[in-house]
Simulated assay, not measured.
Amino acid sequence: MSYDSPLTLLSLAVAIAVTAVGVFLVGHLGSRVKVLAVAGVLMGLGVAAMHYIGMAAMRVHGRMHYDTATVALSVLIAPVRVPARRGA
């Protein structure tokens, strides 16, 4: 197995960029629910993008296949956070 270096670096750049934007939003606009929601969704989608770009960078013998429904579900789940119970 090997990796496509430009795609691997793109995956890293996406992770850094979405994290920086998310932290910037919360740092400069505060931790209001709307700001946290936007930053969280952006970061979750960015993590999903980073993940799939990184997987596309893998060079393996054979073929990799992705189930469209499973990929779509994983992208939808990425930005969702279930609130913790208070006192837990």
Score class of each variant (00 low, 15 high):
39 A>F: 00
71 V>F: 12
23 V>I: 15
57 A>G: 04
25 L>K: 12
28 H>F: 07
82 V>M: 08
18 V>F: 11
55 M>N: 07
74 S>R: 11
25 L>E: 12
35 V>N: 03
15 A>G: 11
83 P>H: 03
21 V>E: 12
68 T>G: 00
33 V>R: 13
81 R>W: 06
4 D>T: 04
29 L>Q: 06
51 H>K: 06
22 G>F: 11
77 I>S: 12
29 L>G: 02
33 V>N: 04
2 S>G: 12
10 L>M: 02
87 G>A: 09
27 G>R: 10
72 A>Y: 03
53 I>V: 08
18 V>I: 06
21 V>I: 15
67 D>N: 07
61 H>V: 14
2 S>F: 11
74 S>N: 10
88 A>H: 02
59 R>D: 11
14 V>N: 06
65 H>T: 14
27 G>S: 14
23 V>A: 14
47 V>Y: 08
65 H>Y: 06
81 R>M: 10
35 V>G: 04
15 A>V: 05
45 L>P: 00
84 A>T: 06
83 P>K: 03
76 L>D: 00
84 A>C: 02
53 I>M: 10
32 R>W: 01
65 H>V: 09
17 A>I: 09
38 V>C: 04
54 G>C: 04
48 A>E: 10
8 T>D: 05
41 V>P: 05
47 V>P: 01
30 G>E: 01
27 G>K: 13
30 G>V: 01
33 V>Q: 10
34 K>F: 01
48 A>S: 14
11 S>D: 09
83 P>E: 04
16 I>Q: 05
50 M>T: 15
3 Y>A: 05
82 V>E: 01
85 R>N: 08
20 A>S: 15
79 P>Q: 11
43 M>W: 08
16 I>S: 07
10 L>Q: 01
82 V>I: 13
24 F>K: 15
18 V>D: 06
75 V>M: 08
58 M>Y: 02
71 V>G: 13
60 V>M: 14
36 L>S: 08
45 L>Y: 07
37 A>H: 10
44 G>S: 04
7 L>A: 00
39 A>T: 05
17 A>V: 12
10 L>D: 02
72 A>G: 06
26 V>D: 05
34 K>G: 07
38 V>R: 03
23 V>W: 13
19 T>L: 15
13 A>M: 10
46 G>K: 04
11 S>C: 05
29 L>V: 01
12 L>A: 02
61 H>L: 15
41 V>R: 14
73 L>E: 04
12 L>W: 09
37 A>E: 10
77 I>C: 14
74 S>K: 13
26 V>L: 07
12 L>Y: 06
39 A>V: 02
31 S>K: 07
57 A>L: 05
14 V>C: 05
13 A>L: 12
19 T>N: 15
69 A>W: 10
14 V>Q: 10
38 V>Q: 03
88 A>I: 03
69 A>P: 00
29 L>S: 08
70 T>K: 08
68 T>P: 00
84 A>I: 08
75 V>R: 07
9 L>S: 04
80 V>N: 06
48 A>G: 13
73 L>W: 08
14 V>M: 00
18 V>C: 07
19 T>R: 14
1 M>S: 09
77 I>H: 14
33 V>D: 09
22 G>C: 13
70 T>Q: 09
27 G>H: 11
43 M>C: 09
62 G>N: 07
16 I>A: 13
49 A>Y: 08
7 L>T: 01
56 A>V: 03
